[in-house]
């Protein structure tokens, strides 16, 4: 009981409309953002409540501020971040992709690297906020331009484990349930909306 009635801040939401099978891009100045099966679908925000709309908006802004274009795809047959990012890197005209899981864990990948390697990995989803996502987008774009940006500083918090480890496991289990085995990646278009939460 006791629903709060003070006006909540308007919250940005996003829907990802499927456009069709994801294709390999030909533009050398593009970065592909690959989202996981439950991103902006079963889930709407990361483990620390960053709305998925904000994650995408910041990644896109970071890429665009470098004068690079972006495409978004959804990988549907796996919730493994390395697989998602590596798959997207193969689709990217520049060979650079950003993979992001619903809980927020993010990776920058490059198509010629082994799948289990990466350019940058941000494993601690609870420590990723809007600013970090913007810098990740920016770095991915710089890699796409053939530059060698300084890696986004990774943060560390020893108390993230007691607070977030089990929730992260739960979110992962839910994401795994959203996997559609055998379905190829699809190109998606984001539709952002402002809504009032609650």
């Amino acid at each position: 009981m006791g629903t709060p009635t003070t006006s909540p801040a308007p919250e940005r939401t996003v829907r990802l409309r499927e456009l069709g099978p994801a294709r390999r891009g030909s533009r050398p100045d593009e970065v592909v953002i690959a989202v996981s099966p439950a991103f902006a679908d079963f889930f709407t925000k990361t483990i620390v409540d960053v709305p998925h709309a904000e994650v995408l908006r910041q990644l896109l802004a970071g890429i665009e501020e470098q004068g690079v274009t972006a495409r978004i795809v959804r990988v549907r047959d796996t919730a493994d971040l390395a697989a998602i990012a590596h798959t997207a890197a193969q689709l990217s005209g520049s060979g650079i992709a950003v993979g992001v899981l619903a809980r927020g864990t993010t990776m920058i990948h490059q198509k010629d690297l082994p799948r289990l390697s990466n350019l940058e990995l941000f494993p601690q989803s609870p420590l990723l906020d809007a600013q970090v996502f913007r810098r990740i987008g920016s770095n991915a774009a710089q890699y796409a331009k053939g530059e060698s940006p300084e890696p986004v500083p990774t943060r560390n918090d020893q108390m993230a484990r007691p607070r977030w480890q089990a929730k992260a496991a739960l979110l992962h289990l839910k994401e795994v349930e959203c996997i559609e085995a055998g379905r190829d990646p699809v190109e998606v278009e984001p539709a952002f909306e402002l809504s009032r939460a609650g």
Partner: peptide
Amino acid sequence: MTTTQPRRSRRTEILENRPVNLDGFV
């Protein structure tokens, strides 16, 4: 209570701020 933030008990506030409530439970 519908017109303001629900009032919280002082005790709940104290408990809410105990370190154990920074831990995660599922």
